[in-house]
Design a protein around this nucleic acid. Structure first.
Lengths: 217, 217
DNA sequence: AGGTTAAATTTTGTATACAAATAGAGCAAC
DNA sequence: GTTGCTCTATTTGTATACAAAATTTAACCT
């Protein structure tokens, strides 16, 4: 496979996201530099950028480590996503064009088709996850708020690290797809309260499905 | 005045926030470096960090500029703040201790006292602004969500740049203080829906006061 | 043996040097 | 006058060298 040109930032990032660099592992600039055949300078820059995104923790004069998250962090993140994506629905609904609604309906249809294929398919889960990202990303884009998009983006990384894309139960998958349909229907009807409420419930349902019920502190 | 040790990041940051570096001005690494008597390396690092925070725009191989915002950006930012701070109220209310409520009540009282002092006082406005930051910051802290705090923090910079702390009309100031009281009362009563609703209205009212009504696109 | 101090090593922070890319000036052709 | 080109100057991107800080190791004393 021809080596595609990627930035050092992307390389370290995917190394973290794939778990190649394990949790709270120390990231020594020199080591990373020699392993990638470059100098410390761009490595250092990439680490600081990853720190700004929250994927890496750096302490002055003491270097960088892969950031660490627990279930509590993930609950927090899904909570914020539910708030922000719900708001995206609210903003997107009055702006939605017929073409955009149709696009979302198509994504819904594709996901429903995929859900009906046999469970053993290796490619089914990533295909569903990809459509899911497209669905949510499209609504954020339709909200026409660049900053809202940026905020949500920074929240997305961490769940990916945690291998969140585990198998939904068939019932949960059906429920999730139904939420999608309902969101589109609400937007089509111009009912932003409906759309945003379902989106809120949708993200929180995903949280419960993935993380289970909260511990009573 | 003894020169306090500040990081290069802080120096550039305050230079932007005070308007010393004007809007969309080009930030040449070498120039900044010599003007601060240091080398390009830490300047570069500070610029990238500021870029991650949204105070600076960088394009590859083309350098950095002070970021630029228009009224639309500011509307977006206040909109997101209203959503996130309202959510902070929701989270904070069931967790609020008696001591924390009392602290907020004290801040309210101080602001009310300040509002009654004569209008000509030069120190009144910054004192009010400081108390306001404490009030909002305390509630965010009480929400016990570090990520929520971080998201809000990144949204705060820009309004500061725009010299947002202009004079409120006396009526708007009274209304604002009344909102604060009502938020604390709602939290005291354990009514998170009330508290978060008033917070939402409070931030959006500040937006209208500062930016005026939206242009009909 | 336990704990404290002092070298030695490792690692980060900063400076400088050079390579690559971009922007701009000047000139030529139309 | 305008468009397009080339060459130059400026500026960014990366490598390397050195200084400062932190961590580890070793020695030492009680």
């Amino acid at each position: 496979m021809a080596k595609i040109a990627t930035t050092v930032y992307e390389q370290i990032r995917t190394a973290i996201l794939t778990g190649e660099l394990s949790n709270s592992e120390r990231l020594v600039e020199e080591d990373l530099a020699v392993s990638m055949g470059i100098s410390r300078t761009p490595v250092r820059e990439a680490l600081r950028r990853l720190a700004a995104e929250g994927l890496v923790d750096v302490s002055p004069n003491r270097g960088a480590r892969v950031a660490e998250w627990d279930v509590h962090d993930l609950r927090e993140i899904f909570d914020l996503r539910s708030i922000l994506e719900s708001h995206a629905c609210e903003l997107a609904t009055p702006r939605a064009s017929a073409a955009e609604i149709e696009f979302l309906e198509n994504v819904c249809f594709e996901m429903e088709e995929l859900a009906e294929t046999e469970l053993t398919s290796e490619t089914r889960l990533p295909a569903l996850a990809a459509r899911n990202r497209i669905f949510h990303g499209k609504i954020i884009e339709m909200s026409n708020s660049t900053r809202l998009g940026l905020l949500i983006e920074t929240l997305i990384h961490v769940p990916i690290v945690m291998q969140t894309y585990k198998v939904y139960s068939p019932e949960a998958l059906q429920r999730s797809l139904h939420h999608h349909r309902e969101i589109v229907n609400a937007m089509k009807a111009g009912d932003e309260v409906w759309a945003s409420s379902v989106m809120r419930a949708h993200v929180l349902a995903a949280r419960e499905e993935i993380l289970g019920q909260p511990d009573p502190e």
